[in-house]
């Protein structure tokens, strides 16, 4: 193991991790927004938009991110649509993540007992108020474990960003293997980098899930 080599190239990994996390964060936030919007469209049974949402969810869930990115980055320019590497990565992640987040929100909303909606109706609340004050606050706390799992899933998915010419962790690792043949060192740093990023998030998710399961409102 060449420790000097490792020390020399750690900054490269840090740069790559920053890039990946930045894009990942934007993509995840957008996924959450898209997911919530779709869950609301389904809840309110908005005509047309609802059908579009169904088609989108099926398309998104049954195709790999890698193929989505190839289409965005290599295919679309041939139709005159040029999107930057970062743009493709964000759009791809959001296209993929939106449907997963939508499913998480949807199952949260469905878990709220029907009586809650009726009780709110009986108080004279309107549909928009019911979702805002009664359904969503309960649904989101149920959805949190699934949302966390999706965040971890999406961060893992960012590992394919190198195909749209982004210098992410995989790109750096492959570069070091190709250029210097320092396979062990490059792979070790790669694994450690992902552990540093993903381990805290997954521990946090586990803690959150446990505290939600055993507690509840009023503890």
């Amino acid at each position: 193991m060449d420790t000097e080599f490792i020390a020399e190239y750690i900054p490269l990994y840090i740069e790559a991790a920053k890039l990946m996390l930045g894009i990942g964060l934007i993509g995840i936030v957008l996924s959450l927004i898209v997911g919530l919007l779709i869950a609301l469209i389904q809840y309110f049974k908005v005509p047309i938009l609802r059908q579009i949402a169904t088609v989108y969810i099926e398309l998104s869930r049954n195709t790999p991110l890698l193929v989505q990115l190839f289409f965005l980055y290599f295919g679309l320019p041939k139709a005159g649509i040029y999107i930057s590497s970062e743009g493709c990565a964000i759009i791809g992640l959001c296209f993929l993540g939106g449907s997963y987040m939508a499913e998480a929100f949807r199952s949260g909303i469905e878990s709220v007992e029907k009586g809650q909606e009726e009780a709110a109706l009986a108080l004279g609340l309107r549909k928009g108020q019911i979702i805002k004050y009664v359904i969503l606050p309960q649904a989101i706390s149920v959805s949190i474990p699934a949302l966390c799992a999706n965040v971890i899933f999406l961060i893992k998915e960012t590992s394919v960003f190198s195909v749209v010419a982004l210098a992410d962790l995989m790109y750096v690792a492959k570069d070091l293997i190709g250029l210097y043949y320092k396979t062990d060192e490059a792979l070790l740093m790669l694994v450690v980098a992902y552990l540093i990023i993903l381990l805290p998030i997954s521990i946090l998710a586990a803690v959150l899930e446990r505290s939600l399961r055993y507690a509840g409102f009023g503890n």
């Binding site: 893992k156 590992s159 995989m170 396979t183 792979l187 790669l190």
Partner: peptide, 18 residues
């Protein structure tokens, strides 16, 4: 916890080398 691509790299590049 590891992205599947990292696992692929570990086996494809790592095993070959080590």
């Amino acid at each position: 916890i590891m992205p599947q691509l990292v696992l692929l790299f570990l086996v494809f590049f790592g095993l070959t080398k080590s």
